[in-house]
Amino acid sequence: MMMQTPLSDLAPGQILARGMARALSDLRYDSLPEMKLRPRLRADLMALGHKGEIWIIECKSSRADFRADKKWQGYLEWCDRYFWAVDSDFPTDLLPEETGLFIADGYGGEMIREAPFHKLAPARRRTITLDFARASARRLQQVCDPGGVGL
């Protein structure tokens, strides 16, 4: 049985990611936190929908956190839709209007603005979907066998 980490033990961005994972599940999207896309580029959350649509959600816990992120536009080529997840106190006027927006906390999230749809090329979608599946399998294996070889 897996134990749930108390919110008090999580960093602000991790709290947003946890709530967003729950919100995405309600929308029929399965998500992975800290999904590596390429060297030095890792999405806070990547989500895969039941029809294969791929979303990336970046969780920003403060104005400084957002301003420090100089790589966010690099994520656009790795998803069909791109969203920000912020808490209710975040100054949302900082966020680009051509991106989606969720307001979230540690327990869930609500979509405030739909992200524009930019359909991925079939080869890129296949690569990302396989990477998502393999990362999911590796993480499950680590939970099932923490001392396993090659993990």
Rank of each mutant, 00 (worst) to 15 (best):
L45D: 05
L24K: 04
W55T: 01
R63E: 08
W55Y: 11
S25N: 12
A64Y: 05
I54H: 08
D26F: 11
A23I: 13
L16F: 01
K51D: 15
I54C: 10
S61F: 07
M46K: 02
L32K: 04
E58P: 03
L48Q: 13
K36S: 14
G52Y: 11
C59K: 01
R22V: 13
S31A: 15
G52C: 01
K36H: 12
D30T: 15
E58C: 03
G19M: 08
K36G: 07
S62G: 07
K60W: 03
S62A: 09
E34N: 13
M35K: 04
R40C: 05
S61N: 01
E53Y: 11
E58M: 01
R38M: 09
R40S: 05
R18F: 09
L37P: 03
E34Y: 10
S61V: 01
I54Q: 07
L37I: 14
L24M: 13
A43W: 02
A47G: 14
Y29S: 11
P33G: 07
D26N: 06
M35Q: 12
S61L: 06
D44G: 09
R22P: 07
K36F: 03
I56Y: 01
R38H: 12
S31V: 12
P33K: 06
L48I: 15
P39G: 01
M46I: 13
I54W: 10
L45Y: 09
A21Y: 00
R28T: 13
R28A: 09
K36Q: 11
E34I: 12
K36W: 09
A17V: 14
M46A: 14
